[in-house]
């Protein structure tokens, strides 16, 4: 499927990633080429095939619901761009 420039902009918005307006046409071509590659999969009928969940069929393990880690908030917030009083700061959201 050929991807047009509006679709590139829509995907960039969904992914919350700014892209250079000069690059939109390039991304449209590159995405179209990769999707054309992916469409080779259509040649095989997979209606009776299960999708893979884990290569060795492992299932999700469960463990007892107990606390394993201590409070590491201060350590984690040391590497944050902006914090105050234990909170992560972002631009004002609510007027």
């Amino acid at each position: 499927m050929a991807v047009d420039e509006d679709t590139v902009r829509a995907m960039a918005h969904l992914a919350r990633v700014q892209i250079d307006p000069d690059r939109v046409a390039g991304y449209a071509t590159e995405m179209s080429n990769v999707l054309a590659l992916a469409e080779q999969m259509e040649e095989v009928d997979t209606s009776d095939v299960e999708p893979m969940a884990h290569p060795t069929h492992a299932v999700q393990r469960l463990r007892d619901d107990v606390v394993l880690e201590g409070n590491e908030r201060e350590q984690f917030q040391e590497i944050a761009p902006e914090t105050n009083d234990g909170y992560y700061l972002v631009p004002q959201v609510i007027e």
Binding site: V3, T7, V8, M11, A12, L14, A15, R16, V17, Q18, I19, D20, R23, Y27, E30, M31, V34, L35, A38
Partner: peptide
């Protein structure tokens, strides 16, 4: 948008766009 746009390089952005699409 700008943190991700400026922080990621071209190939990473390309794959994010393809992944978002599929």
């Amino acid at each position: 948008k700008r943190s991700r746009g400026e922080g990621f390089g071209r190939e990473v952005k390309r794959r994010i766009l393809i992944g978002t699409y599929v």
